Simulated scan of single mutants.
Amino acid sequence: MSTDGQFDSALDLLRRLPPSSTSANLTRICALAPDLTEELLSSVDQPLEVRRCKKTGRDYLLCDYNRDGDSWRSPWSNEFEPAIEGEDEGAKPSERVRKLEMGMGEAVDIYRELYYEGGVSSVYFWDLDDGFAGVVLLKKTTPTGKSDGGWDSIHVFESIDRARTSHYKLTSTVILRLSTSSDALGDMDLSGNMTRQIEQDMPVTDDSSHIVNVGKLVEDMELKMRNLLQEVYFGKAKDVVGDLRSIPPLTEANREKATHQEMINSMKR
């Protein structure tokens, strides 16, 4: 099988396996097909990992956008951990883009505390020929106990400079997982992901405008996706449970359903 065929098959397989086991299954596929490792890691969204910056003592999130080999760049210290030996110290943003990255990182950290009341956030920027790009990461997990859950949001954007405006393209992915196990409720596993994309031109007066514009796009997108997840995941789960579990006697429920159908049929005549 060609490399392209193997890659397509791997993505197809991951889509059919439980979303809660994406990381473990991705590791197994990479072990079977090492040549696909880089491409799969950059294409498949998986729950974010947390690491503590040795220099500042602040937590940050790991992703493909701050990775160089087996090292990850801390957004707080701008240094790779573990350090990269040799002349190549790893890919880092320019001075201007690094300043934007720091400003956006502090803004997102405030947003995380206000909206999530905990969790971890990280922001990474990099240079483009006609602008810059970046990723905003947010992670929140439930306290350790009988239930296990987490929210991971990944917002990748690019900003293309134009006269007095910038063209923003945002691709957002949310990974949601909820599971619980108890004698009273039994086992439940609700997990999956959702991806949405938007493009928009917004006015720019100086570099600080980028922080405001990107922040607004991310905040609006997260609100929309939270509402969609509430309707799709929780609303559908409620409907399924309601159909499976009947509080009134089944004979009474069937009688009401027959009466309702009879009324509908009479209206069609």
Rank of each mutant, 00 (worst) to 15 (best):
D45R: 10
E38C: 02
R52F: 00
P47N: 11
R51G: 04
E38V: 06
E38K: 13
L36S: 10
A33K: 08
P47Q: 08
K55F: 02
S43V: 02
L40R: 14
K55W: 00
E49K: 12
R52M: 04
E39C: 06
V44N: 08
L32F: 07
R52E: 11
A31F: 05
L48P: 04
E49D: 12
D45C: 06
V50I: 10
L48S: 02
A31T: 00
L41D: 05
K54S: 12
S42N: 13
A31P: 00
P47F: 03
Q46L: 04
S43Q: 05
T56N: 06
E39A: 15
P47H: 05
I29V: 14
T37E: 15
I29E: 09
C30A: 14
C30W: 00
V44P: 08
L40V: 07
D35M: 11
T37A: 14
E49H: 11
L32V: 09
G57K: 02
L48N: 06
L32M: 13
I29Q: 12
V44T: 02
T56A: 12
L36F: 09
Q46V: 03
L40M: 11
A31Y: 03
V44A: 08
S43E: 05
P34T: 14
T37K: 15
L40E: 10
L36A: 10
E39P: 01
L40D: 13
S42G: 05
L40N: 13
R52L: 02
R52K: 11
A33N: 09
V44L: 06
D35L: 13
V50H: 04
P47L: 05
D35P: 00
A33I: 04
S43G: 07
T56Q: 01
E39T: 08
V50F: 03
L40S: 09
E38H: 09
P34S: 13
V44Q: 11
R51N: 09
D45H: 11
C30R: 13
D45L: 04
E49M: 08
P34C: 08
D45N: 11
L32W: 03
C53D: 15
G57R: 03
L36R: 12
L40F: 06
E39M: 09
C30T: 10
K54G: 15
